[in-house]
Amino acid sequence: MAIMTQSTRGGARPGAGRKPSPDPSTTIRVPGSQKAAVLDFVRQRQAGLRIPSGMEIFAFAEHPPRRQFPLMSHAVRAGFPSPADDYVEKRIDLNEELIQHREATFFLRVKGQSMVDAGIDDGDELIVDRAIKPEHGRIVIAAVDGELTVKRFFQRDGVVKLIAENPKYPDIEFKEGQEMLIWGVVTRIIKSV
């Protein structure tokens, strides 16, 4: 065994230690419990593995996204508000204009010709309000023999009947004790032109 003196041990040795790197390293802190998971994750990424879809990893933004803004080519004039500003109002909404009781209003489609003289044609849509009380002379929807039908409501001198507005169709008369259900009152007719 060679005898060594103290002067040959320790001290700086040229060329020893970590080689200088073009990509200097840095330290990050992660929760201790997650260390393995993070390392695993980074290794998978380095290996170019794809994580199952749904857990996809989005790429790092290597170049920060750039956004272009248009240059104004004309001057913006300030201080002159539109003279109409004070008059801006909400546009007309047919739901608001034509529907009085939202919960009780239904649309129905007509099939048949029995009301043509009242302006109700085959294929027209009706706005029907169930909240309105059916009165003599109004156009109503009634349930007759298990079917919904549109007719004019007649109620005078103890006589109740449903009148068709087309001479080719008979009226529907009701006798004492016979049941008739008024389904709703027609408020508007929608026609295609």
Binding site: F106, F107, R109, V110, Q113, S114, I120, L148, T149, V150
Partner: peptide, 14 residues
């Protein structure tokens, strides 16, 4: 769907 689809409105005999 009587109340939610325009093409499926309930029919009423006229």
């Amino acid at each position: 769907c009587y109340t939610t689809v325009w093409g499926e409105l309930a029919e009423v005999s006229g």
